Each structure stands twice: as structure tokens, then as C-alpha cells.
Amino acid sequence: MGGPVHEWDEDPVLAAGCVLWRRSPAGGELGICLVHRPKYDDWSHPKGKLKRGEDALAGAVREVGEETGHRCAPGPRLTTLHYLANGRPKRVSYWAAEATGGRFVPNREVDRVVWLPPAEARERLTQARDRELVDELVAVLRHV
């Protein structure tokens, strides 16, 4: 009765997020926003599950606002990551997004945010797959 069933054959959990960035007003240095989630004690890019029927880009922008308190202007689409989370396949669509204002207020889901230069952001990120998004953002911004 068909081949083996793999966990990737299930419907994936759909999520979206942004690699949120801004330039320093003084020297123009690039800063990347990372969020700390106390539930997992990890550092990541702002992201979250999509609501039923929600467009991925709309969900990414919503998650940035909910997790960082910042508004953003989404830019180029970045890599979509595929991985297992709690035994289920997960698909996370990412965009580069420039922060356009706002203020972080700690909440239950995210207790801290930091703005770091790319090299420091790569070091702080918990998951290796998230580090590749930093490199991709830097490459994309070179051509904008």
C-alpha cells in the first residue's frame, strides 16, 4: 500500500517572520533585531504561526509587531526554512524588513530584544538555520 510514510508527508505547521533591520542614525551601521523567548530560552528572528487563512507576508508583519513592538516595511523575500518542531514539519517563510518605528514592551512570549551588527547577531542566534538568514539579509541589502 504505497511507500513508507515520512513526517514530511503531513501538513506542515505554517509560520512566517522577518529578519528585522535598521541603520544607525549616526554612522549608518546595520543592526539586526533578535528576540529572546523565555519559554525556549533562545534567540531568534521574530516569527510565529499563521492564523487560519492568513497570508504569509501579513503574518510576518503581524508577528514583528507582536514580538518587537515595531512597525516594519517588508522588502525582499528571503529563504523559506523547513524543519521539524516537536515532531511535526514546520515551514517558515521569511522576508527582509526595515524597522520604521515603534517601541518594545516585554511580554509573555518575548522578554528581551537586542539590535546587533550582523556578526554579533550570527553568534547570538540559537539555531544555525537562523544564522544563514543574517548572511542572506546582508547580501540582499548590498544590492538594494
Score class of each variant (00 low, 15 high):
Met1Ser: 15
Gly2His: 14
Gly3Asp: 10
Pro4Glu: 07
Val5Asn: 09
His6Arg: 12
Glu7Cys: 02
Trp8Tyr: 03
Trp8Arg: 12
Trp8Ala: 11
Glu10Arg: 15
Asp11Ala: 12
Asp11Ile: 01
Val13Tyr: 02
Ala16His: 07
Val19Ser: 07
Val19Thr: 10
Trp21Asp: 00
Trp21Pro: 02
Arg22Leu: 07
Arg22Tyr: 00
Ser24Trp: 05
Ser24Arg: 15
Pro25Cys: 09
Ala26Gln: 14
Ala26Phe: 04
Ala26Leu: 13
Ala26Met: 11
Gly28Asn: 09
Leu30Arg: 08
Ile32Tyr: 00
Ile32Asp: 01
Cys33Val: 06
Leu34Tyr: 01
Leu34Cys: 03
Val35Glu: 11
Val35Trp: 01
Arg37Pro: 06
Arg37Asp: 07
Asp41Phe: 02
Leu50Asp: 06
Lys51Thr: 12
Arg52Gly: 09
Gly53Ala: 05
Glu54Cys: 12
Asp55Pro: 08
Gly59Gln: 10
Ala60Asp: 10
Val61Tyr: 01
Arg62Thr: 06
Arg62His: 07
Gly65Asp: 06
Glu66Lys: 14
Glu66Asp: 12
Glu67Trp: 01
Thr68Leu: 08
Gly69Thr: 03
His70Gln: 13
Ala73Leu: 14
Pro74Ser: 03
Gly75Ala: 14
Leu81Cys: 00
Leu84Trp: 00
Ala85Ser: 14
Ala85Met: 06
Gly87Tyr: 01
Gly87His: 05
Pro89Lys: 08
Pro89His: 04
Pro89Met: 02
Lys90Thr: 14
Lys90Arg: 15
Trp95Ala: 03
Trp95Phe: 05
Ala96Val: 03
Ala97Gln: 08
Ala99Ser: 13
Ala99Tyr: 01
Glu109Pro: 05
Val110Phe: 03
Val113Gln: 05
Leu116Asn: 00
Pro118Thr: 05
Ala119Asn: 06
Ala119Cys: 01
Glu123Pro: 09
Asp130Thr: 11
Leu133Pro: 02
Glu136Cys: 02
Glu136His: 07
Leu137Tyr: 01
Val138Cys: 04
Val144Thr: 15
